[in-house]
């Protein structure tokens, strides 16, 4: 084992420990703000894993999209909906957590057993591409052109739909009463509705 392989193994171990520990923190910590920041740590460590796997463009996209967009979106959502409320006890809650834990641990052991017993054909050398961006761009604009365009349209539709869902509805009868002129350019929204009847 030369020096480069040693560095790779050490960084793989560190990144794996970071990913699993931070993911456990995301799921188990009671304070959800800590969970959101640990989720950012998971995303950053995942981009380090992608760099270990020679995927430089996907690592950069991971940092830009996940850490820059999704994590910030989740933090804003937490700030919008976070209200310290004591959760009511659910009947059989501990039993449910226990059963879920057993199922997840057994699924993990099954996957680990499968991964370690299968003979993977990885004997041939890994091609040293100068950069993955050229290869990815050729794929995107030749044989994966239709999925690429479809996913672009899907992203646009999802963002427009998110805006429609998240803003309160426009009130038509408020126009008839007549707003002052300086409020005409504002995004008119319905005032907050009273709390719906909870069962």
């Amino acid at each position: 084992m030369n020096l480069g392989e040693g560095v790779e193994v050490v960084s793989l171990v560190i990144l794996a420990a970071l990913i699993t520990g931070a993911a456990m923190g995301v799921v188990l910590l009671p304070n959800i703000v800590y969970s959101a920041f640990l989720l950012g740590l998971v995303f950053l460590s995942m981009s380090g894993m992608y760099l270990l796997l020679n995927a430089d463009f996907v690592a950069a996209a991971q940092i830009l999209i996940y850490v820059g967009a999704v994590n910030v979106l989740i933090l804003f959502a937490i700030m919008l909906v976070n209200r310290a409320e004591p959760y009511q006890k659910v009947k059989g809650g501990m039993l449910r957590n226990l059963v879920t834990g057993v199922v997840c641990v057994s699924l993990f052991s099954l996957l680990t057993y499968t991964v370690t017993t299968i003979q993977w054909h990885t004997s041939y050398a890994i091609a040293a591409l100068p950069s993955t961006i050229v290869v990815l761009a050729k794929h995107f604009f030749s044989d994966y052109l239709l999925p690429f365009e479809l996913v672009s349209v899907l992203l646009l539709m999802a963002l427009v739909g998110a805006i429609i869902l998240a803003r309160r509805e426009f009130v038509p009868d408020a126009i008839a009463i007549g707003y002052p002129q300086e409020e005409a350019l504002e995004l008119l929204e319905r005032p907050k509705l009273p709390v719906a009847d909870r069962s």
Binding site: A23, M24, M49, L53, C104, F108
Partner: peptide, 14 residues
């Protein structure tokens, strides 16, 4: 890498 991904997936399911 596959074992790390399996662990992350199981934590996500939990």
């Amino acid at each position: 890498f596959l074992i790390v991904a399996a662990a992350l997936f199981c934590i996500g399911i939990y």
